[in-house]
């Protein structure tokens, strides 16, 4: 799986959260808050993804591999990620009540992003190791942050544009995401026809 696919995956998750998941959960949409909320979201995703990839490697190496249960890795990742989200939200309400409201509200969506990126990372990698887990989690999280920042500015520009009525909302967001990925694809010398 290439870098561009991970970039596209993060954009897909962001657009879907903006138009479906966030409203259904009653949370503020991730792109509406501008750079600041995109940055907060990106940082939570980076930290959480790194920690849960590392924990997943620990569980894999010391619990699953000795018993020959390597196929349980994705299930373990799901449990670890959700447990991490729950734990951090619990500690935030306990020790920082009323201070980190934005951070706490971005946690459920970040957990969904961990699932998107972490599942792809687990499926795409070819070897196992602590350094590899750390590096892939950190870099995927940083890629997500960059994608969120870029797309937040694109989305800000779209909000000033006159969009055709049948394109307004979700379709224009998807088209914008496609064009952003296309610009990245241009750097690889991609022939369009």
């Amino acid at each position: 799986m290439s870098i561009i696919q991970f970039f596209a995956l993060s954009l897909a998750a962001l657009v879907a959260e903006q138009f479906g998941v966030a409203r259904r959960l009653g949370l503020p949409a991730p792109l509406d808050g501008g750079y600041r909320s995109a940055l907060v979201m990106g940082l939570t995703v980076t930290v959480g993804l790194t920690v849960s990839m590392l924990l997943c490697w620990v569980v894999f190496a010391f619990l699953l591999a000795p018993f020959g249960a390597e196929y349980l890795e994705e299930a373990a990742f799901l449990l670890l990620g959700a447990g991490l989200a729950w734990l951090s939200s619990h500690f935030m309400t306990r020790f920082l009540p009323g201070r980190s409201e934005r951070l706490r509200q971005s946690l459920p969506l970040s957990a969904v992003n961990w699932a998107v990126l972490g599942g792809a990372l687990l499926a795409a990698r070819s070897e196992v190791g602590p350094a590899l887990a750390l590096r892939s989690g950190l870099l995927a999280g940083m890629g997500f942050t960059v994608a969120a920042l870029v797309f937040a500015s694109v989305w800000e520009r779209i909000s000033y544009a006159r969009v055709p009525r049948s394109f307004s909302g979700l379709p224009i967001a998807m088209a914008a995401a496609g064009l952003v990925v296309l610009t990245l694809l241009g750097f690889t010398g991609f022939p369009m026809w």
Binding site: E74, F77, G81, A82, A111, V112, A115, V116
Partner: peptide, 16 residues
């Protein structure tokens, strides 16, 4: 990797 997603979304909804 897609199989993780409905579980994650539903768990976020449950938490909320």
């Amino acid at each position: 990797p897609l199989f993780l997603l409905p579980a994650a979304v539903n768990a976020a909804m449950l938490a909320r």
